[in-house]
C-alpha cells in the first residue's frame, strides 16, 4: 500500500497535529512514513502545508505534483493552491470557511471563499465541502477542525487508515481530557 496525503491551511489552524496523527497511526500499523512541513518565516500567518507519504516506494519527502491521493484542506483557497499536487480522480476534503489574509484590511484583496469552493466543485468529482463553523458549534469546540477533517477524509475516501487507527493515535498523542471531544469530532462525518 502507498498513500500520498496533503494537508494544507493557514498557520495556526492545527495542520501539524493532523499530520502527527496520520504519521503515528501509520507507524502503529508498521507502515513506513515520510513527511515534510513548512517551517519558519512562512508559518506566521502564511500558507502551511504538510506532505505525508505512507507506505513503500517513496524517495522524496515532498509529494510530486499530480501524485497526491487526497488533499485535506483547512481553508478553501489553500485547497485550490495545492490542486496541482492532486492525482487524476483524487479526492478533496475542504473546509468552506475562508481565512482572510492578514493584509486584506490594507486593501488589494477581494478574496472570498465561495469562489474557491465553486471552482473546486467544477474541477473535482470526489469533493467533500464541510462547514466547520456549524460542525464546531455542534461539537462545542473550535479546536477540533483537524480531527473533524481527518474523520471526513476516512469516511469519504481511502487513505489507507481507519477511524480506529486514528482513534488509537489520538489516545497516544492527545491529552486525555480532550479524548472524548476528539472522538466525537472524528465520527462527526459518518
Amino acid at each position: 500500500m502507498s498513500k500520498n496525503i496533503i494537508l494544507c491551511g493557514v498557520g495556526g489552524q492545527g495542520t501539524v497535529l493532523a499530520s502527527k496523527l496520520l504519521s503515528a497511526a501509520s507507524m502503529a500499523k508498521g507502515l513506513p512514513v515520510k513527511s515534510a512541513e513548512t517551517i519558519g518565516m512562512a508559518q506566521r500567518g502564511g500558507s502551511v502545508t504538510s506532505h505525508i507519504r505512507i507506505g513503500d516506494g517513496a524517495y522524496s519527502p515532498l509529494i510530486p505534483m499530480g501524485k497526491a491521493d487526497v488533499i485535506i484542506a483547512f481553508e478553501p483557497a489553500e485547497a485550490v493552491r495545492m490542486l496541482p499536487y492532486l492525482k487524476e480522480s483524487g479526492a478533496v476534503i475542504v473546509n468552506s470557511r475562508p481565512v482572510m489574509p492578514v493584509t486584506a484590511a490594507l486593501g488589494g484583496s477581494d478574496y472570498n471563499g465561495k469562489e474557491m469552493t465553486d471552482y473546486l466543485a467544477e474541477k473535482i468529482d470526489n469533493l467533500t465541502v464541510i462547514d466547520t463553523d456549524k460542525a464546531c458549534e455542534e461539537l462545542g469546540s473550535s479546536k477540533v477542525i483537524n480531527v473533524l477533517l481527518l474523520g471526513a477524509a476516512i469516511s469519504k475516501c481511502d487513505i489507507g487508515l481507519s477511524k480506529e487507527d486514528i482513534r488509537n493515535a489520538i489516545g497516544r498523542i492527545v491529552p486525555e481530557k480532550f479524548h472524548a471531544l476528539n472522538f466525537r469530532a472524528l465520527d462527526y462525518i459518518g
Binding site: 500567518g45 483557497a77 485550490v80 493552491r81 489574509p101 493584509t103 486584506a104 474557491m116 471552482y119
Partner: peptide, 15 residues
C-alpha cells in the same frame, strides 16, 4: 493550463 481564480497572498507579517 491553470484557470484557478486569483489566490490570496499571505505574506509573513509581525504578529
Amino acid at each position: 493550463e491553470n484557470d484557478a481564480p486569483a489566490l490570496p497572498v499571505r505574506p509573513p507579517v509581525l504578529c
